[in-house]
Amino acid sequence: MSDAIHLHRDDEASKLGMWLFIFTELLLFAGLFIVYGIYRYLNPVAFHLAAEELSVTVGTVNTIILLVSSATMAMASTAIRLKNKQLTILLLLATLFMAFMFMTNKYFEWKGKFEHGIFPGSEDLLRLGHGDTLFFGLYFFMTGLHALHIIVGFVLITIVCYRVNNNTLTNENPVLLDNSGLYWHLVDLIWIFLFPLFYLIT
């Protein structure tokens, strides 16, 4: 197939496409931010009290993990341009490790909530009242959707790592790495908004 068509490569186009896609992702979450804003406005006291249930420590640790992973991802983009394959792979693996750590923290955080009877549709939550139901509904929905993005990013970076390793992704064609990096920064950016909304505003 591809030999019939001239191999056409346009890194600018790939970047532009990725930015547009990131734009749509932001808008996807924007819908949820609107819903959050409206229900917070309608239930200020309940949202305030419910937010105190979440552990700021866990949230902060996860924020630091994601910020550092964004840094290692950006460094991988530079490393591949310096033709340092070993370092690139090391940095990508570090990013993957931190993504894993983030998910582990998330797992224990959610598990703790579940054990306290706080999960969508639970009896305990309904007894707490509308504001709490909505707060935790949004909490699970938004952090859950964000976690899904972490998993997608994880898969993407794994593919990049594999391709760097077998030399099909080098300093000649780093655009897939760059775009995965952009995606990863987006995941990071969304978390930067989720963190204060759920953990810090109490």
Binding site: Y39, P120, G121, L126, H130, L134, L138, F140, F141
Partner: peptide
């Protein structure tokens, strides 16, 4: 979850 359900707020 109850985003749009009046019974859940």
């Amino acid at each position: 979850i109850g985003f749009f359900d009046p019974a859940l707020g």
